[in-house]
Simulated scan of single mutants.
Amino acid sequence: MKTFFTRTATALVFVAVMLGGILYSPFTFFLLFFLINFFALQEYFKLIRHIDPDYANISAWHKTGLLVASCALIMAFTGEHFSSSANLSLGFLGWWMTVIFLLIMPIGEILLSKDFQLKNMGYSALGLAYITLSLGLLIHLCLNYKTIQFTETATGTGPGWLIPLLLIAFIWINDTMAYIVGSLIGRTPFAPAISPKKTIEGTVGGMILAIAAAGVYGHFWGEQYLALQHWLVLAGIAAVFGTAGDLIESKLKRMAGVKDSGSIMPGHGGFMDRFDSLLLAAPFAWLYVHFFAMI
């Protein structure tokens, strides 16, 4: 019973923080995912150290430089959105910091590390692509893609947070419905070596219901912002790539021999545990919006 109340309280706080950060202003949206990136990346480093103990030998310069480069890259995705009176934007500053640290970090690692190994640079680069690039594209989606392909009856642009919020909602619906359907009628294991509790019936059921929910939203409310078929595709992306993202993180945790990526959220694990689906779905959603849903 104590565990149930702990999980419930944590979930309520989590939802409140997420909604507040996403909806309050563009800057709080950026700040929310800036912090998620910072902590999720550190959890990723911890998993890699469990998988390959050699990664624990990277220099302090490597660790610090990588975190700075990651934070700078997140800033870079804001573009010209946040600018000072001197016309110095957060995005411009972020791009220059990213370039500088990504250029000098390998040099410092080679010179300062007692046991330099090229594979450790690869692990770090993978972390930037897997976590920082994904969340940066989500921020870019919010701040820069307000003009999208509207229906003939649309009267104006939608809020920047709309697609990211709905993408997260579709992922949540897919995960929840997959669990419920799998518990009721699931019989056939989907990926027993990675996630023994996932079933084909639950996975397919979750995807169908997530797309159905997108259809209902698109038909009754969403068409004033985005054509119905786009909402259906975005839900499909959330379901398919969200499920793949969940399996990828489960595989990493199995390789590392840990149950959760972290313990920041009692009863729910760490940041990677909460955002594993979004980390893979966000880049594909960005690609779809960029190439198919923009005017």
Rank of each mutant, 00 (worst) to 15 (best):
E201F: 13
I36K: 07
A285M: 05
A125Q: 06
I148A: 03
S261D: 09
S195A: 04
F150H: 15
K114C: 04
T78S: 05
L103F: 10
G136R: 00
G79D: 10
G94A: 03
W95P: 04
I264D: 05
P26R: 06
W172P: 06
M255T: 05
M1R: 03
A178S: 15
L111P: 03
W95F: 07
N57V: 07
L88G: 06
G205N: 13
L279V: 05
N144K: 14
L73N: 09
A169Q: 10
D246H: 00
Q42M: 12
L103W: 04
H290Q: 03
L137W: 10
G267W: 08
G65P: 09
F38P: 00
L287D: 07
F45P: 03
I104Y: 11
T199C: 13
G65E: 00
L67P: 02
L141Q: 14
L226S: 08
R274A: 12
F14I: 03
L141E: 07
L118T: 09
T155M: 15
I139Q: 11
V13F: 01
F77K: 04
N87R: 11
W96M: 11
D260V: 03
L19C: 02
G79W: 07
W61P: 02
I139H: 11
V216K: 14
F271R: 02
A178N: 04
E201A: 11
K198L: 12
H219D: 08
W95M: 13
M18A: 14
L19F: 14
M18R: 04
L137Q: 13
L19V: 05
I185V: 14
N57M: 05
S263A: 15
V216I: 15
F275C: 09
G267C: 12
G186K: 03
L228R: 13
L66Y: 13
P26N: 11
W161L: 09
A214P: 10
I264H: 11
S261L: 08
L41F: 06
R254I: 07
A154N: 10
T78Y: 02
I51V: 10
A293F: 08
T28P: 06
T199I: 07
L103C: 04
Q42I: 02
N174Q: 14
L35V: 05
S124R: 08
T176A: 13
T176C: 05
F29D: 04
L228N: 09
T28K: 08
L102M: 14
T243H: 09
T188V: 12
I248L: 00
M177H: 01
L279Q: 00
L280R: 01
S195W: 00
L93A: 11
G94K: 00
Q149C: 06
T147Q: 12
C71L: 15
G127A: 06
F92D: 12
I208T: 15
A40S: 14
A293L: 13
T199V: 12
T203Q: 06
P159G: 03
L167F: 01
W96T: 01
H81C: 05
P192Q: 06
M121A: 13
K251E: 06
G270S: 02
D276S: 01
K197Y: 09
G122Q: 09
G269E: 07
S85R: 13
V181T: 12
E43P: 10
F292H: 08
I58E: 01
S113C: 14
A72R: 06
I131G: 02
M265Q: 11
I295S: 14
G205I: 10
W286Q: 08
L102C: 08
F291I: 03
L141W: 05
Q117Y: 07
F271W: 12
I36D: 03
F92Q: 14
